[in-house]
Write a protein that binds this DNA or RNA. Structure first.
Lengths: 243, 243
DNA sequence: ATCAAATAAATTTTCGGCAATCGATTGACG
DNA sequence: CGTCAATCGATTGCCGAAAATTTATTTGAT
């Protein structure tokens, strides 16, 4: 059974389709961290040849979602406490810059857009009726859109693209933490405060709130990650015991 | 004639070799901005099949050095004044964070490494005896190493990888500016000051110097870019004149 | 039994060729 | 004369199979 809801629309290259689906599957942890990505398996999963898949994997390697080892193939990037901390700390700083610039430059258009994004987010249920063990895909979309709207007026495309890459990586950790423990926190309030501060052009407050928003996620994910570490390490231990 | 000095060493995947050579050729502007990258031509240039080349190109697209348009193939990323400004502004902020953390955390090891990198850089001639229209490749290497040494203790791999990606993109603009006008500035002094401030753990001064270092490059490149804009736009104008 | 070399299986990586697509040119028609 | 449709060449994108490499298994010597 094909995995992703995002069915490849018409007139896209298989390459692009593979890229979208793979990225989506990795971020949602339908392909688990450290899982080996055998081309034959993916070939079957997505119903296409090896070339578009390898190309997509190379692309994802640059994005940091996939790792490649010479002649040993691809695997989904490993997760770890250190990587999580690294990622979140970096993300906080990057978003801070983007937010600062966005608050400086944002006009009416930006304000309207932000309000609109918040409204859509607040009306979207976080829980997925179909799959209670996962966050609603629609909510994820609106959530991402809201945070994008916050920084969208920053005027530095390079910075924005870096930001969204980090955001995606963080989403993977969140997906992971949902799978183990899911006391879904209510973050409508958080988002509202964030928006208010931004609209008031209160840079310090916005940055603080954003930092707290990220930190709170980080803590939750870190706990879940530590808990799931109790599971067996997937390294094979098939060497026969000595004497 | 194969282009890059960096001959693909033994036992590397063709894929990896293509990646290295392509990146090097693009950064050095041996493949010019906006130039179309036909696979057949690259196939011949690097002496390999289409697959490893396409894979490398996809990788480079994620890095921002190459652009892909559906069914129309790849081209080297466009350069522009806006992109240059965007790039440099982003780079300043990112390096500022990395520097701050590096100065906080750097130990003796880091200091030693930095001194060593500076020494190597200061003893390396900037001009290439073989090709006076280009910067010595050895110098570029030492220069990159020096700046990497400055931030190396920052402790955030994610941030460092972002930094080096931006650094590479900037190198391309520098290469471009060298080709048109080359009043090579003496930057040994600048680098020395930068190192001194860093070793003294003077965060503000280090950040300022770094900002100025980048800005100075930016200005020089911006002028050269504007000048070269007088050249004909490589867009074909083969439509017959009307009436 | 232990270890190492040798073989076999599995998987990655690469190639050559074919189908789909785009851009330009040509020719028919209003 | 200009517009639109059909055609052709060039180029991309894709597949299936071959080559190279790693991993697992067997064999043989000590």
């Amino acid at each position: 059974m094909p995995s992703s809801l995002a069915e490849s629309d018409a007139s896209q290259t298989l390459n692009a389709s593979a890229l979208t689906q793979l990225r989506s599957d990795i971020i949602a942890c339908r392909l688990m961290p450290n899982e080996r990505l055998r081309v034959e398996a993916l070939r079957e999963r997505y119903g296409m040849g090896a070339s578009p898949i390898r190309e997509a994997l190379m692309r994802l390697e640059a994005e940091g979602l996939v790792e490649l080892e010479q002649n040993k193939g691809f695997r989904v990037s490993e997760v770890s406490r250190e990587n999580l901390l690294d990622l979140m700390n970096t993300r906080i700083e990057i978003e801070s810059i983007a937010l600062r610039w966005s608050l400086e430059k944002g006009g009416v258009e930006w304000e309207a857009n932000l309000l609109s994004a918040f409204h859509r987010l607040s009306r979207q249920s976080k829980i997925d009726p179909a799959n209670t063990a996962a966050i609603s895909e629609a909510w994820s979309k609106e959530h991402a859109d809201f945070h994008t709207a916050l920084v969208s007026a920053c005027g530095a495309p390079t910075l924005l693209s870096i930001r969204s890459r980090l955001f995606e990586q963080a989403e993977r950790y969140v997906a992971l933490s949902i799978m183990s423990s899911s006391p879904l926190r209510d973050d409508v309030t958080e988002h509202k405060q964030l928006m208010r501060a931004a609209l008031n052009r209160d840079v310090d407050k916005t940055l603080d709130l954003n930092r707290m928003h990220i930190t709170r996620t980080l803590d939750k994910v870190a706990v879940a990650l530590e808990a799931s570490k109790a599971h067996v390490d997937p390294r094979m231990m098939n060497r026969k015991t000595l004497k």
